[in-house]
């Protein structure tokens, strides 16, 4: 492996890192809002909302992300109404089309994760909050949501990692993020292995840090599950 070439590649790939992170963070942040709305629609008990959310999740989880990107980036421009609408300056940009597609896609997967979290909140907790006289929104904000987030976090972490990986598809609609730059360097130099190793290492590093971050948040959110060290020692002593 050519070290000089690899370090040169590393520098050009690192300059594409901000775009990858920007795509991932924007899509995950906006997607989480849509996902929460979808999860609440599923659990609302209102038939129309319920079926809309079901259909949404079914369609977005059943089709490839690349098709969704193409449908938004190339497909929507077919309609004159879209081209003349106020959204055109946004839908014309490959960046916003990629963000939109990634966001809508992650919302479908994340809504199921959030729904699982919301369903896992023990009924007794909600009842206790109601008995304390909390109004509905306060129960949701103070009791249901924190418990649901704690439960959904590991699954959401996996979804975030697959989103970081999914940003690579933005390179197909001309965005020069890490994979796009890597593909350009490969097709210019035909040195596949070096570029692959460097690009792969960057993605691995991002995902490793993301995993650690989520593990840390999970640790902070579950103090009640940590065993106090002193008591742990006493219990050990009793066993003898």
């Amino acid at each position: 492996m050519d070290i000089a070439f690899a370090s040169e590649t590393l520098m050009s790939l690192l300059s594409a890192l901000p775009l990858t992170l920007e795509l991932a963070v924007t899509a995950i942040a906006l997607g989480s809002v849509v996902a929460l709305a979808l999860a609440l629609a599923r659990l609302s008990g209102i038939l129309v909302l319920d079926w809309f959310a079901r259909a949404y999740v079914f369609v977005f989880r059943g089709t490839p992300l690349l098709v969704q990107i193409f449908l938004i980036y190339y497909g929507l421009s077919q309609f004159a109404a879209v081209r003349h609408s106020i959204f055109w300056p946004i839908l014309r940009e490959p960046y916003w089309c990629a963000v939109l597609a990634l966001m809508l896609n992650t919302a479908a997967y994340a809504s199921e994760i959030i729904r699982g979290g919301l369903l896992s909140v023990p009924h007794g907790q909600v009842e206790a909050a109601r008995a304390c006289g909390m109004p509905r929104f306060m129960i949701f904000r103070r009791i249901v949501m924190p418990l649901a987030i704690r439960q959904a976090l590991p699954g959401y972490g996996n979804e975030m990692i697959s989103m970081v990986k999914a940003t690579s598809l933005a390179s197909i609609i001309t965005l020069m993020e890490i994979t796009g730059v890597a593909a350009r360097i490969i097709s210019e130099s035909y040195r596949v292995i070096e570029v692959f190793v460097v690009a792969g290492a960057i993605y691995l590093a991002i995902n490793f840090l993301l995993t650690r971050l989520i593990a840390f948040i999970e640790y902070r959110l579950t103090p009640h599950q940590r065993q106090p060290l002193a008591i742990h020692g006493e219990l050990k002593g009793e066993a003898h």
């Binding site: 990986k165 690579s168 598809l169 994979t179 490969i186 097709s187 035909y190 792969g200 691995l204």
Partner: peptide, 22 residues
């Protein structure tokens, strides 16, 4: 398993396509 679950699939496809061609 750690590496393949941490890098994008598109990158792996490029590796095999361009690498295979090389």
């Amino acid at each position: 398993t750690t590496i393949l679950r941490g890098i994008p699939d598109l990158l792996v496809i490029y590796l095999f396509y361009f690498g295979g061609s090389a």
